[in-house]
Design a protein around this nucleic acid. Structure first.
Lengths: 212, 212
DNA sequence: GTCTATACAGTGATAGAC
DNA sequence: GTCTATCACTGTATAGAC
């Protein structure tokens, strides 16, 4: 925010303007004017508007996932009764509850504008943070295995983690008036934990889905 | 597709180009050239590029939700054992399995570009199809109530339906290679049904979330 | 009413001087 | 590294022909 070099000034200005106006509506001229740098500087330092969006996105998500992993480290030491919930909270809470209202606005707009700029941004993000999701999948699998009767099927668990991330991403787009984020986070954790336990817990009662 | 009037020609050309290139990358000049009409025609008939996007979006989602409601009508007549699954299939399958590969590509891109053009497109869609979600919420509530021990809490059920829609929306953005849509649909239905039954079914075993 | 030709201000990008 | 000048192209608006 108070960085002095040109790249950081551009990133900071872009972050603020994107949060208030969205990606598409924000022009490079606005950004460079706000940052107090020349228009051409953004191309020299970042390459293109699309690359600038990537960079802003990356800086935000790097931070988010760092916090998730930190919270996950504490969660996996939890006694088995609530461990699954603690793990899911580590996934959900940094995204929904983090920071002040400004941060939440930014998160919301960032996610809302997810698909705006290029068609493979989604894939870019998924690849960049796949190790985080792998880590969560492993922790969830371990928690279920310890509490349940069998080792969860990996492919099925991956799909389910995607469902949770999808629900979370959708919830991140809520406007301020759309509901209490604390309540939403708690509901999502309960929803996900119940589904995970129910589909992996007791083989006799929950038949495997037909593997097509 | 074979409509002769100018409006339909524009909508058809836009639909195809959007599906192949995304909203943002597609220019009005491309659209009008493909449609064989004058550039100004899009403003005369639709008003703006944003309005054109709305119109294309609307035409697609009207169709999708019509099919959902039709499938829901059959689902609610199902015997109670699998009724919840049938209802969830009515929500999920038209979105994931519908039509040929072109339709699926279009659905994927449409959803991927959900937030692209204006910041309240999300809200626009939610408002326009809220009656569909109300109908599904009522059907799910009824199915749970009949099978379970108590009437589900409406606010909680609404949140959960949002989670399911979020997971579904996310799954709609999968690329062709990302997984078998039939498998994804089946997994999502099972995931959602398990969560719904588990959180609303037996009060003693599944404590209410703290209502903040 | 419907469509065409034309113009306009603003965009992202880039070559080349400093 | 930075800046100016300039480019092709964008969405939009409108005057006027059919």
């Amino acid at each position: 925010m108070t960085d002095t070099n040109t790249s950081s000034k551009i990133l900071d200005a872009a972050e603020t303007l994107f949060a208030n106006q969205g990606f598409h509506a924000t022009t490079l001229r606005q950004i460079t004017r706000t940052a107090g740098v020349n228009l051409a500087a953004v191309h020299y330092h970042l390459g293109s508007k699309q690359a600038l969006v990537h960079a802003v996105f990356e800086r935000y998500l790097d931070d988010l996932n760092r916090q998730r992993l930190r919270q996950l480290e504490n969660a996996v030491t939890e006694a088995s009764g609530r461990r699954l919930e603690r793990i899911l909270e580590a996934l959900v809470e940094p995204a929904l509850l983090l920071g002040g209202q400004d941060d939440r606005n930014f998160a919301r707009l960032l996610v809302r504008a997810f698909a705006e700029n290029d068609r493979d941004l989604h894939r870019f993000v998924r690849d960049r943070y796949s190790h985080v999701m792998k880590r969560f999948a492993a922790a969830i699998s371990e928690a279920l295995e310890q509490a349940g009767e069998k080792k969860p099927d990996d492919a099925e668990l991956r799909r389910q983690l995607d469902f949770i991330v999808g629900a979370l991403t959708y919830a991140m787009t809520y406007d301020a008036g759309d509901g209490n984020p604390t309540q939403v986070a708690a509901s999502l954790v309960r929803f996900a934990a119940t589904a995970l336990r129910g589909t992996h817990g007791s083989p006799a009662l929950t038949p495997e889905p037909a593997e097509a």
